[in-house]
Amino acid sequence: MNTSTRSLLLEINSLQTWFDTRAGTVKAVDGVDLTLARGEILGLVGESGSGKSVMGYSIMRLIDLPGRIVGGSIKFYGEGTQNEDLVNATSDRMRRLRGSHIAMIFQDPMMSLNPVLRIDTQMIEAIQAHAKVSNKVARDRARDMLGKVGIPSPEERLQAYPHQFSGGMRQRVAIATAMLNKPELIIADEPTTALDVTVQAQILYEVRKLCRESGTALIWITHDIALISGLADRIAVMYAGRVVETGLVRDVIAAPRHPYTAGLMGSVPSNNPRGKPLRQIPGMTPSLSNLPKGCAFAPRCERATVTCQQVPQESPVGAEHKVRCFHPIESIPAQSRHDRIKV
């Protein structure tokens, strides 16, 4: 699980993705550093408007005008690719990478599946776009993959249209399609948010199993810190376009150092005594076009001081545990916290 012992797959350095709007420049992603090792599962956590989805789209280079990547680099060390910077890759090159080396699972599978094409057509197309194989071989591969994500009687289901599937099944088809070409990296943008808890648990279970088996790295973008804590190896918490805390799940969850991470975990109902008011973060997420100076969290933070009017830099607080805060939470109320956390 350790980044240093495994070979690096993705290295993002001070990435900036901005949107020019009439109301001013919206800095959706503003100086994000992230690394990802082969086969690692990273949870990218943040509330709406924190820039977590734009991060995913930036890696896929799916940012449309008025958005653009204005700075930074996304180094991708894929198989057969040497030290490639995705920011400068040609659109032709990106087309070959997407779907074969890097795949994405979107939140709403009804939007990513074509409603007028049968599942087999769409899946075979995805295979043949990257490999010269016969229809028969491609079809068999599609069928096997559907079976692997837990779709019953895949042979028959191949001939169905997306609307004939339930929401959970549709998301499984989307996941199967993403895994068809054995990508090295999958970016999943809130894929279980619209699903029931029972279905969500099934899908989490399948995805993690598949990633472990095939050695695929996974970036799971979510707003649900409780969900990701049981899935990921490492976690990165985003707030207003910046990663404010990153580290191994057991470090970050057991002892969050950034006040925002601590606040986020405090507001999860199951982390609070029943019937008592929930601990809440005052105020609301700032508008990205009008960010407060310095640390964007400072106006909502009880630890903020004058120093916080400058932008805090990422500083290590433990092995692989980094935090972007001038006043990180130091002491851990060790015993009480561990009592509450149900492992």
């Binding site: 029972t198 409780a226 990921a232 799940v249």
Partner: peptide
């Protein structure tokens, strides 16, 4: 019982999912 075992809880290590089989 099945529903309760599936609530995402804050955890410090990857947990095992025991999903209820099938769909509604």
């Amino acid at each position: 019982k099945g529903l309760l075992s599936e609530i995402p809880r804050i955890a410090t290590q990857p947990r095992e999912f025991v999903p209820i089989k099938g769909e509604i």
